[in-house]
């Protein structure tokens, strides 16, 4: 259990997908203009990352590796992600219209969110186990959620500041992300083992 908490904290704070690896940058910059939409997209990312990671893990471990079809990894992973997003969209629409109204528009966007595919590829290259990959998916999603909420809140505030015209909007978003990245580096000092307790 301690091991899993380690992975979660590491992926959420220390190796944040957006601020340390720049994954999911496009939707992060495009959808962070208001806090509400950022919140919706952030939730959807946690959701989809948490679901696709174990599925891709199973596919990789029991289908691709045994029959040595690793070269199909990219195609299969992206197909799984695309179809899972579609499936999740349908299920959510059927059973939870409230959640669908909140997430609905963002779900299709997530297929091409690099954080999702990136998560799966990191999972393979770091050789996580199944429970670890779930923890990594949830942790990475949570980190992404935190980052987009933080920048959306800052961008809402900064609209009232006197920024040089040429830097307004996109330029400021880049600068703020850079500063947030530096701030998150301070979290590198966290020793996940201490939080997780004795194993």
């Amino acid at each position: 259990m301690g091991e899993l908490i380690n992975v979660f904290i590491e992926s959420a704070f220390i190796e944040n997908l957006v601020l340390a690896y720049f994954l999911g940058m496009c939707s992060y910059l495009a959808v962070s203009k208001s806090l509400n939409t950022a919140f919706g997209l952030g939730l959807a990312v946690i959701f989809v990352l948490g679901i696709t990671m174990p599925i891709n893990w199973l596919i990789n471990e029991y289908l691709l590796v045994p029959i040595e079809l690793e070269f199909l990894r990219f195609i299969l992973f992206i197909a799984v992600i695309a179809s899972m997003v579609q499936l999740v969209e349908m299920v959510v629409e059927k059973y939870s219209p409230g959640l669908y109204a909140a997430l609905g528009i963002f779900l299709p966007l997530i297929t091409v969110n690099c954080a999702i595919l990136g998560g799966s590829l990191f999972m393979v290259s770091r050789e996580y186990t199944l429970p670890e990959s779930v923890a990594f998916g949830l942790g990475g999603g949570f980190g992404w959620f935190l980052a987009i909420i933080a920048i959306a809140a800052i961008r809402e505030k900064i609209r009232y500041s006197n920024v040089p015209p040429a830097l307004r909007g996109l330029g400021m978003a880049f600068l703020i992300t850079g500063l947030m990245g530096l701030a998150f580096m301070a979290l590198m000092g966290i020793d996940p083992a201490v939080i997780a307790g004795p194993q």
Partner: peptide, 19 residues
Amino acid sequence: VMPAAAMFVIAIVIWIQRA
């Protein structure tokens, strides 16, 4: 060398381009 620097460099490119 840190990842954050890429953001600053791009922000400066954007700034120059839009100015």
